[in-house]
Design a protein around this nucleic acid. Structure first.
Lengths: 345, 345
DNA sequence: TTGAAAGCGCTAACAT
DNA sequence: ATGTTAGCGCTTTCAA
């Protein structure tokens, strides 16, 4: 690494020059309009002049002032991304991966990403962002039931998409098919003979968790087996609750525990370990996400793998199309992959 | 949750009205200048007119058009945050927590946060952000040695701060004191009698890792004990490398392994488990961050705890002060806390 | 204490 | 094919 040499383009040192469209017009003896047209490609223009302008621009590394363009067109070329600020979610890499995907597409369409946060009860920062006209559209990354952000966004008539699923059909959603995914995963387990199965599901205000619950139930129905709903634990939002549930479950001789996310699963594994149970000997375990959270567990954990960054990319594309006035599908369902590992063997 | 009622303020439905400063001026029979002054607080104005304007604004929920303000003042009221896009870092919650802190302060100063990404070798998105005049300043979240982003930022004369440490003194840095922290942690362990100690450190192009290494060495020097540098492993960037190091280390009968981050530590624990070693009986383990990554490990892991969100908050404050032209310290060192747990007892 | 007017840098009718 | 002109909504001299 030592001794590496960076040759930066000359443009950098000229940052202060601040060339404008009028400068170029004057310098080339044409009108501002002509220059503008050459840049945007709108309107007819002779090849000759267009090239002359383009070349000048290139040679002088001219960059149009986006603020001025924004003001003239009432467009910001920014998309807003709303991240949940609930403290317990900050540790989850999901949102960061998703954000990376959104940033990628945004840049490729010459948009930028401005982030803000919201909680279940406080959407003031989202409101501020919108009222300040900072964005042309919004990506919401964690829909909940009776989502105040969604309610608000619907009223503003600002284009927006949701990463995840919403109860409201008219909202544009990009999600993995968690219902089918959880159903399929559960079915596989049922067919392996693990019919006494417990579900430890997370916060039921998060749509994704209700969907997994639905998928779980559907699997039993599809397989013609009655589900024992007393083995379903929802809203497992704290270690204490999880520990208690695990203890009860293990006393009831279940074959298998399905955890609705990796955080829950991580705690379940710890509790099993503490109380002397071994996986998969005493009980099988399956989870979701296949994230780094569980990467180093021994045994490896069977789970549903989804590509979070792609989710962000698709959401970004949808939003940008929406902003451009294109018609887009209300619901985009992305793939998932069931990864069977030692924890269920 | 069912039946909850939201009464949104009337403003929402009037989003389309788009009140401007001229509307208000006309309505109130004053000039645009007067309205502008009433809002900004700049320039003298009679209490009476100021209040009249302010009240009108309040009643009609007027929000100034920030784009227009931007154009007039050549300010964007945005700060840029550069996140590392290296895939293996996406899973670390550090950057997300930091981002949350930055978002918080930004909002409180009426700034917004636009995020972009950079890798060691590709800073094109950062350049684009800056050339497009999208931000008034930059927070860099992961300094490396010979950092191209830093080189570029220095040339642009745009205000910027770095979360973490840089080799270059003139760069404004906000960091926890990792040298002292690692030194103190190591000292505590030495004083507990674990003198045959191994260090598993991460990517040495990341300044934070070199600093931890320095602290580790300093602890030995402070305690007058020669350090066995053959037990120091750097650039532990893959599981294979870590596994190999752990195996070698354990054959050499060390008392204690210090891991320079929780990802490394997680893998070390797994490898120890796989190869039949038990913590803390066979070997003591210490790590950094005290993140959720290790939260559920048994035994709990001794580590250096830092408050990442506060780091983001401080960085945000520094940058905003810098943008405002205030003098600020070149180096802000935040606290840390050593948390002794079962893994070193 | 207040106002008129120019200007930030770009776009977009509407000419020519 | 190119130019003229009038904005976009705000700030800011300068004048009254």
């Amino acid at each position: 690494m030592k001794g590496s040499v960076f040759v930066e383009d000359a443009s950098v040192s000229e940052v202060s020059k601040n060339l404008t469209i009028s400068d170029i017009a004057r310098e080339l003896g044409v009108s501002k309009t002509t220059v503008s047209r050459a840049i945007s490609g709108k309107g007819r223009l002779s090849e000759a002049t267009r090239n002359r302008v383009l070349q000048y621009i290139h040679e002088h590394d001219y960059r149009p002032n986006l603020i001025a363009k924004s003001l003239a067109q009432s467009k910001t070329f920014n998309i807003g991304v709303v991240l949940p600020a609930d403290t317990n979610l900050t540790e989850i890499p999901f949102f960061q991966s998703c954000l990376m995907g959104i940033c990628d597409v945004a840049a490729s369409f010459d948009y930028d990403v401005v982030v803000t946060t919201a909680t279940e009860n406080d959407i003031s920062l989202l409101k501020r962002l919108i009222k300040n006209n900072k964005v042309d559209g919004i990506v919401l990354t964690r829909p909940i039931v009776n989502d105040r952000s969604i309610d608000y966004l619907k009223q503003t008539h600002l284009p927006f998409v949701v990463v995840g699923s919403s109860e409201e059909d008219e909202v544009i959603q990009i999600d993995n098919n968690h219902i089918d995914g959880c159903c399929e995963l559960t079915s596989v387990l049922i067919k392996s003979g693990y019919t006494t199965m417990a579900l430890l599901a997370g916060n039921q205000r998060h749509i994704v968790n209700t969907n997994r619950y639905k998928g779980f139930l559907k699997a039993f129905k599809d397989n013609g087996i009655p589900v024992n709903e007393t083995l379903v634990y929802t809203d497992m939002t704290s270690n204490v609750l999880i520990d208690r549930a695990v203890d009860t479950i293990m006393n009831r001789k279940v074959d298998c525990i399905v955890c609705s996310d990796d955080i829950i699963c991580s705690r379940v594994l710890t509790r099993l370990n503490e109380t002397g149970y071994s996986v998969p000997k005493d009980v099988k375990i399956a989870s979701f996400y296949d994230s780094a959270y569980l990467e180093n567990y021994n045994p490896p954990i069977t789970s549903l793998r989804i590509d979070i960054k792609t989710l962000g990319i698709e959401a970004g594309k949808c939003l940008i199309n929406l902003i451009a006035g294109k018609e887009i599908a209300n619901k985009t369902l992305l793939d998932y992959e069931i990864v069977l590992k030692k924890s269920t063997m």
